[in-house]
Design a protein around this nucleic acid. Structure first.
Length: 203
DNA sequence: CTCTTGATCTTCT
DNA sequence: GAAGATCAAGAGC
């Protein structure tokens, strides 16, 4: 006897796109609210599982110390993407928050892959779904995001950012890979998820 | 599982 | 000239 096909019902529900106003708030409100939303780039991507928040008065932020050629997008309007090169090798993507003139952004650190799995596997050269997007550099490689996309609006093609369709359990912890403000609990992720870049230790 | 190390190059001082 | 919002591979337990 068949049981309710919840997966099919979800797939046929029209998803709601996040509006620019969603990002025009404190980065510390936006960051946890992004967990469970779905990020797609040219139809490839998945559910956001892990993020970190950075703002201008934060010594670990690229915007700490003022405007430079690299970080200008962070000082611009909310809802655009800031892409930077990490360790000369990888690309990492952020979503800019707060009104223009304030320089804050959310680093996207991990996704649960849901769309375009074959493309992600080809770009990453891997099969394990848990390794496709479990880090900021990995997910940019999997989605095909590079520096040439910096400054684009998240609300327009080739991007899509869709609201949550289910409840999420969010854990907070310290950020990864920084040497300043190391005790600030500004990393957020799906509690207990296997798709995180690293487990979130209790504070 | 955790820890260590090399790769690689842009950015800002 | 030094540091850096990372990753993958290898060693050790």
């Amino acid at each position: 006897m068949a049981i309710l096909d919840v997966g099919h019902a979800k797939a046929t529900t029209k998803p709601a796109a996040l509006t620019p106003a969603f990002f025009n708030r404190s980065v510390h409100e936006v960051a946890p609210d992004l967990i469970g939303t779905t990020l797609l780039f040219n139809g490839v991507g998945g559910m956001i599982a892990e993020v970190e928040a950075y703002h201008q008065a934060d010594p670990a932020s690229h915007s700490y110390g003022g405007r430079t050629p690299r970080n200008v997008v962070m000082f611009g309007p909310a809802g655009h993407i800031y892409v930077y090169r990490s360790y000369g090798i990888h690309w990492c993507v952020n979503l800019v928050c707060e009104p223009e003139g304030s320089a804050a952004a959310v680093l996207i650190r991990a996704l649960i892959p849901t769309e375009g799995l074959p493309k992600m596997r080809r770009r990453r050269g891997l099969n394990d779904v848990h390794d496709l997007c479990s880090g900021p550099g990995k997910l940019c490689q999997a989605l095909g995001i590079t520096g040439e996309h910096g400054g684009l609006a998240i609300s327009a093609a080739p991007f899509r950012l869709l609201a949550r369709s289910e409840m999420v359990d969010i854990a907070a912890g310290v950020r990864i890979g920084i040497t300043k403000a190391v005790d600030e609990p500004w990393r957020y992720g799906l509690r207990g998820s296997r798709f995180l870049s690293r487990a979130i230790k209790p504070l």
